[in-house]
């Protein structure tokens, strides 16, 4: 059954497809989402591929103090990011369930992915 209760819509969709720590994609993508929210835009995030690792509980900073993404995700509510979508196939392919995640998410099935993309005026895919 679909978890999407209203038609996806918004100003800005930021797609997160990279895992934290191995690169800066996730951090710099989240920065863009936070700026969008701070500017009053209606912002959605879609985690897909290795991006779903970003929500795994139990992450920490790297040994040189690299920030990772957990702290940023914990701030999302404060920044008024309106929707946090997660590609269910990507979760399952990595052996993850909702219980492993830091935050409640809206699960998106494969047929719904294109609906999420179509519902946003701007898409940035990181």
């Amino acid at each position: 059954m679909s978890e999407i209760t209203e038609a996806p819509h918004g100003d800005l969709l930021v797609m997160l497809r990279h895992a934290p720590h191995g690169g800066l994609w996730l951090r710099e993508a989240l920065d863009l989402a936070l700026v969008g929210a701070a500017f009053g835009q209606s912002v959605s995030l879609l985690l897909m591929g290795d991006g779903v690792w970003a929500l795994l509980q139990g992450q920490g900073p790297g040994p040189l103090g690299q920030k990772g993404s957990q702290s940023t995700f914990e701030m999302l509510e404060m920044y008024d990011i309106e929707r946090l979508y997660v590609d269910v196939d990507s979760l399952e392919a990595r052996g993850l369930t909702r219980d492993d995640l830091l935050l409640p998410v809206i699960g998106v099935s494969t047929p719904e992915l294109s609906t999420v993309l179509a519902g946003h005026r701007q898409i940035f895919n990181f």
Binding site: R17, G49, D89, S90
Partner: peptide, 12 residues
């Protein structure tokens, strides 16, 4: 890379 699989799943 497997990213093409994600593209195909996201396409209308």
């Amino acid at each position: 890379s497997s990213v093409h699989q994600d593209v195909l799943r996201a396409m209308r």
